[in-house]
Design a protein around this nucleic acid. Structure first.
Lengths: 197, 197, 197, 197
DNA sequence: GATGAATGAGTGTTCATTCAT
DNA sequence: TATGAATGAACACTCATTCAT
């Protein structure tokens, strides 16, 4: 993901790394500019404030990952299970580039107070993905591929729960866990778990 | 969980609430003592520092929840699946009292920098639970109840991923999600997902 | 006006001097605490913020000067002109202690943006004094002592205009102007200017 | 006062408005250039620094208003009282264009620290006007039109006090006070107040 | 145990100013 | 003339922590 052409991008890159690692409250403007090689003041020539920096990063996640995910999964044919498989493939493929963005995104609600004006963006992203998934599970049910005794909405929360946990877990245990093996395990358990008899 | 007998306990109670809600960095000593009705200085008559307060809370989680969970699940008879069911029941039963502790616990790695000296405690807890679960899944496999094509360690990470995600999700969507229904959904998907053919 | 008993008062005293001299924007917390011999942080143990400090000073001006002025002028007998004379005497007597407060008060509207939440207090003080003066001039008219061809409200604005100008002028030319002589001049011109034929 | 021909003038116009409204400390270069539609850097192609901008504006007030005032009042015949009336007429006529300049001028001493190198210009203006007025009052006395029991210098300070207060008052109460009515009131009180028996 | 008063280090943010282009 | 990018110094304010009482 080398896009370090100009200062603006350098700040975004550095910030994403630090924010994903230390959280919003745990990352100071100075931390970021020190690493980029700037003074704190220079930061404010590029971003209105710390909150706007976060907003920019989340919106990049939205357009660069979430929107693309939905688009790619939908543009090809296949049944709901095929689509879910593609979704997981996309997540663990293209998604890798956005791993840090995802971690940042999922940490937002914890650092809640930090980005009060970020909340709308966060909600928009959440709702977008949730709606898409509910639809997918409903399709799966009407195609007779997904068991009907579980509520689609609950299934979505389950899926997202897992997804957010996975990212955290991956970071915390980065050295001990093989990511690909992890995704394979998830696939097996999840698809057997939801499939209709 | 009313243990407000003395100031010490009052501080712990209040701190747990605030820390679970706003994170370590997002909670100041003043926030805590204000709510308890003390001055900041009084805090230091009870705890060496902020970090020690966190340590105390995590250790309470360890002995009050993790240790008890392991003990209860093991003390009764039954096969691995029975035990896993008991584990989930315990989590969503007794565990409710410790919901805030769990949220705090799972948020630790995000607030990493906050409690550098907390890391040993956190690791001990993680390893303890992981070892117990690996054992459980291995038992399940040798009892022919759990599919053998998935690595036990990965399965543990999957389980914990879900668990941590669940707590966060539960908090973020507290108003929108019915906790019990959620656990039921998890049970269905999870047990069908891991059971041997 | 030596009330330097404790830190709180010391801050107020020092702040009043600096604020009257350099204005709200021109006076930093550090300026104040440096002169008192404290760190910036100590300031915040005594005042919520800079704005509250200003508020405290203005309210001290209100109760210590304005309210007392009105009370003293009214409590004694005499006609409107007697009262106006007493008012001027009070201003240039007791008022001397409050000279800096008055300067600060009159500078508020210039530093408008500084104390957005100060505006209510400022307005209350203004209105209080204005109402009192309008009344006084009206009395003067009905007693046949003040010329009736001038609007009382305008006369009040004129009086206050002069008053605020006087304070500023007194500061700017402190070394060149004899305050008492100045007040005498004002008395002569003003009373001859407003008296009925 | 539309002189927006070139950027230089545009900056001066905008700056005058903002400075009169928010004071020297309350007006940033960015405030000015934003409103003009320039970058901050561009400002420095036109003015050496913020202080020089202020100097330019004050000097414009000097030549455009003070000098002209003195000239107009003197060039016509009439006694001292006639001249004082002309002075007031000029102030409230031509002076209207320079109202903002006057406000800025009178606010200088408050924002003292702002323009250390402005002080000479400010003093020159003050002295110029004071000298002119002292002369006028002295003429008035020798013409038997102005009472002799008051010191001319004090009378000047009184006049200027009023004048500066009037500008501030006019701004603070812009919506509540009728300017012309105000000037009429001043005329009545002032001329009766100073006239010889 | 608890308080009031204080501190040093830090946070996010603004501002006047510079300079290569 | 104008810009984009940068800086150093300042600012208001917060926080964990200390200490005498």
């Amino acid at each position: 993901m080398p896009r370090q052409e100009n200062t603006h991008e350098k700040i975004l890159d550095t910030a994403l790394n630090l924010l994903a690692q230390n959280g919003y409250k745990g990352t100071s403007i100075k931390d970021i500019t020190d690493q980029v090689g700037l003074t704190k003041a220079a930061f404010y020539a590029h971003f209105k404030n710390k909150s706007q920096l976060l907003g920019t990063l989340i919106e990049a996640y939205e357009t660069g990952y979430i929107d693309k995910l939905i688009q790619r999964v939908d543009e090809q044919t296949g049944n709901a299970i095929d689509k879910l498989h593609r979704l997981i493939s996309f997540s663990s493929g293209v998604g890798l580039q956005y791993q840090k963005s995802a971690i940042l995104f999922y940490s937002l609600s914890e650092d809640l107070k930090a980005g009060e004006d970020i909340e709308p963006i966060r909600l928009r992203c959440s709702r977008k993905l949730e709606a898409f998934l509910v639809d997918l599970f409903d399709q799966g049910k009407s195609q007779g591929l997904v068991r009907k005794d579980i509520d689609s909405t609950m299934l979505v929360h389950l899926t997202i729960s897992f997804s957010r946990g996975m990212f955290k877990q991956a970071v915390d245990n980065a050295s001990r866990i093989d990511g690909m093996e992890y995704v394979r395990t998830f696939r097996k358990v999840f698809f057997q778990g939801i499939k209709a008899e």
